[in-house]
Design a binder for these strands. Structure first.
Length: 737
DNA sequence: CGTTTTTTG
């Protein structure tokens, strides 16, 4: 096993060393997405024979026994063990779907729910949507009478609880990929724990990676005695079926992982036999830089007579989908594919045929500063769990190698797992959702990982300001309940609900829908200037909201033509999605009897309506040329993607969100009149100085949860990025009060 | 004056 030679030196940790052995690495590699069913080495066997070959089959009766006797089962299912497709079927065969009951399986991502449902339906010889179905936003493929095994996104499960708080139709719920700790998985986990107390018959199966198994078991265990025979939860491990992956570390730290990635790719290409390469980087810019460097080097190589060619492909979420599809294309034997990707390739997509993985050791994550209520994107070291997940992207169809561009010593210093999303998110939608589910005292909600107290305060303050909560922190009727019903952030929901009063619900619907889609404007690297010129046609001086409205209306006027989109460098799929989102939102407005009206081209009511939802996000331009928020005097700038960027800056603006990268940037910005703030949010802004008196009011709310939090808790000022950061989490969390 | 990790309802 020759390591690459030259400036890049790797070594494989020996079994005697401090490092983990290869087998251990594989065991701790997190589970794959449900898309893993693509690869099937037993395709020539009958479906029944294939099912029996899966590692999980040997444990079929054991699993059924445990589900029968324990309320919660934590399954540590390694990659390729077959748990996602098989366990629901075992349960159905054992009678858990008798008398109209349903076995539900949740997935964090839509595609996974659909593809696994398809595979299971096929195995059962069923038509998808009958006995086996799936339910994701915009696509309910189930039959209320016939469906027995139902795959759904965890977000959908939380939504279902609004109609049926005890999930009475379900006999078993399996939460797949729970170790990913996505926001909705965590909410579902807390809610299921509560439901189990009222429904002793409900069974929960948590599918997780090794690392978190005990945490899940202890969380669900209702046994308060020391007698383990009374435990209500249990762990079961199912071995996987993957190929060995050798891990190599770099000998000494590299100053520039971009350069090192390029060098490592070239070394692999020149010294290793067949097999595609997957490199993990942190962002679009890095990916594109490496792609062009590699193409350059590959040219030099082929000129010098190298027979084997390199096909270099970028992969990130912002890439047009036609470009994304290229990474799945098969290439001839004389070509080696190199895919340079962001963390999209870690869980969201699975590429077959990867033999070599290069891991730069960093990841770009969204984090939330609970003190300033600003989200930021930060590049941080990956967690061990992520690094192992990256390793696992090789070894799916054959043995492989993983090159880590950091030392083994540094690997050991990495945090065990990434901080759960719950602890690095804006909690306003979460709190509202919980309140709508009847959980009034959100402080006592069983969070698997409690979020920072300050995030709670921010969320409660915002919801109060929007009128969704009253001064006792209770959900208001009907406003609060209605805001919660929208699948949107509360500010958008409030804006929509107000749109009837401004006589512009048509326009606001289009704006709200468009704002949910990222990357509407596309910039193909080679035609960037041309694209910007085309985009300028839609721009208006009022700002991004009305610009997006223009785009949407033009799209409709041109009969939703994909060709028209291409000509104008617009994201066709995104625009189609905007129309779907708009339909869904429109139904809710009809339900709440918001009159259908148009301002007939008058921008004024539309802008005022935007302010009625986003008044809290107002900023003023100062003589320095920089903006500052009204709430906190925080310095802000207009994001370079805004149409107001490089224009004469308007004195007052509102924005949808702030994102901190190199500076604090406002995204989706619209010019407003300061008088509108006083007019439309008199409870939030005072006349004269336009300073907030909101906080003042909040502190006067006796007995409110908010006051409770404010008086008793230490405010946090540090971003919580890693679960391992015990001290910081300890002082910021409200657990135990 | 200088840019978007990734999901989900």
């Amino acid at each position: 096993m020759a390591a690459p030679v030259g400036p890049m030196k790797f070594w494989k940790p020996g079994t005697e060393g401090p490092g983990v052995s290869i087998t251990e690495e594989r065991q701790s590699a997190a589970e794959s997405t449900g898309v893993s069913v693509i690869y099937n080495p037993y395709a020539s066997l009958s479906i029944e024979q294939q099912r029996q070959k899966l590692p999980v089959f040997k444990l079929r009766n054991h699993i059924l026994y445990l589900v029968e006797n324990y309320q919660t089962l934590v399954i540590v299912g390694e990659t390729g063990c077959g748990k996602t497709t098989q366990i629901p079927q075992y349960l159905a065969e054992a009678g858990w779907t008798a008398e109209g009951r349903v076995v539900g399986v949740t997935q964090p991502r839509r595609v996974a729910a659909v593809s696994v449902a398809g595979r299971v339906a096929e195995e059962r010889g069923a038509v998808l949507g009958h006995e086996v179905g799936y339910c994701i936003r915009f696509d309910d493929c189930t039959d209320p009478q016939a469906t027995r095994i139902k795959f759904l996104t965890d977000g959908m499960l939380v939504r279902e609880m609004m109609a049926d708080p005890l999930l009475t139709r379900y006999s078993v719920l399996m939460l797949d990929e729970a170790h990913e700790r996505t926001l909705y998985t965590d909410i579902a986990i807390g809610l299921l724990k509560k439901i189990q107390k009222k429904r002793g018959d409900l069974r929960v199966i948590v599918a997780s990676a090794t690392l978190d198994a005990e945490k899940f078991r202890d969380f669900f265990n209702q046994n308060e005695t020391n007698d383990p025979s009374k435990d209500t939860s249990m762990i079961l491990t199912v071995e996987g079926r993957t190929f060995p992956v050798d891990i190599f570390y770099i000998q000494s730290p590299v100053p520039d992982y971009v350069k090192s990635t390029v060098e490592t790719v070239m070394k692999i290409h020149q010294t290793e036999s067949d097999g595609d390469i997957l490199a993990f980087l942190t962002g679009q810019e890095e990916v594109e830089a490496i792609v062009s460097m590699l193409i350059e080097q590959a040219r030099v190589l082929s000129r010098s007579g190298m027979k084997k060619h390199l096909r270099v492909l970028p992969m990130y979420a912002g890439l047009p989908s036609s470009e994304q599809m290229k990474v799945f294309e098969r290439v001839s034997h004389s070509v080696r594919k190199v895919i340079v990707a962001t963390n999209i390739a870690e869980t969201s997509i699975t590429i077959n045929g990867i033999a070599f993985v290069i891991d730069c050791g960093f990841v770009k994550l969204r984090a939330y500063n609970p003190k300033t209520a600003v989200e930021c994107l930060v590049v941080v070291p990956v967690s061990k769990a992520s690094a192992n997940q990256r390793v696992g992207r090789a070894g799916r169809n054959r043995s492989g190698k993983c090159y880590r561009l950091y030392t083994e010593e540094d690997f050991e210093k990495l945090p065990q797992s990434t901080v759960p999303e719950m602890q690095r998110s804006n909690l306003a939608p979460v709190i509202l959702q919980l309140k709508a589910l009847g959980i009034d005292n959100v402080l006592r909600f069983p969070f698997l990982s409690p979020p920072p107290a300050q995030s709670m305060v921010q969320a409660l303050e915002l919801l109060y300001a929007l009128g969704g909560l009253d001064k006792h922190c209770r959900l208001t009727e009907p406003l609060g309940m209605r805001i919660a019903e929208f699948p949107l952030n509360p500010m958008f929901a409030k804006m929509l609900l107000e749109s009837g009063n401004f006589g512009c619900s048509q326009e606001i619907l289009s704006i709200a829908a468009m704002m949910q889609i990222q990357n509407i404007f596309m910039f193909p690297p080679n035609q960037k200037a041309q694209a910007i010129r085309k985009h300028r046609k839609f721009a208006v001086e009022e700002g991004d909201h009305l610009t997006m409205l223009n785009v949407y209306e033009a799209f409709i006027k041109h009969s939703k033509s994909s060709q028209w989109c291409q000509e104008h460098f617009l994201n066709y799929k995104g625009l189609v999605r905007a129309t779907t989102v708009r339909e869904q939102l429109k139904k809710l407005l009809v339900k709440f009897k918001v009159p259908k009206k148009s301002s007939e081209g008058d921008p004024d009511p539309v802008l005022r309506c935007i302010v009625s939802g986003f008044f809290a996000n107002a900023a003023k331009c100062h003589s320095t040329g920089a903006y500052r928020t009204i709430r906190d005097d925080q310095e802000l700038h207009i994001h370079p993607t805004s149409v107001l960027y490089a224009e004469k800056p308007p004195r007052w603006v509102v924005y949808n969100e702030v994102i901190q990268t190199s500076r604090y940037y406002m995204r989706d910005v619209t010019a407003i009149e300061s008088t509108w703030l006083l007019e439309l949010a008199p409870h939030f802004y005072q006349e004269g100085t336009v300073r907030t008196r909101h906080r003042h009011q909040m502190v006067s709310l006796l007995y409110s949860q908010l006051l409770y939090l404010k008086l008793f808790l230490f405010p946090s000022s540090i971003f919580l990025l890693f679960d391992g950061n015990r001290n910081k989490l300890g002082c910021n969390s409200f657990k135990g009060i």
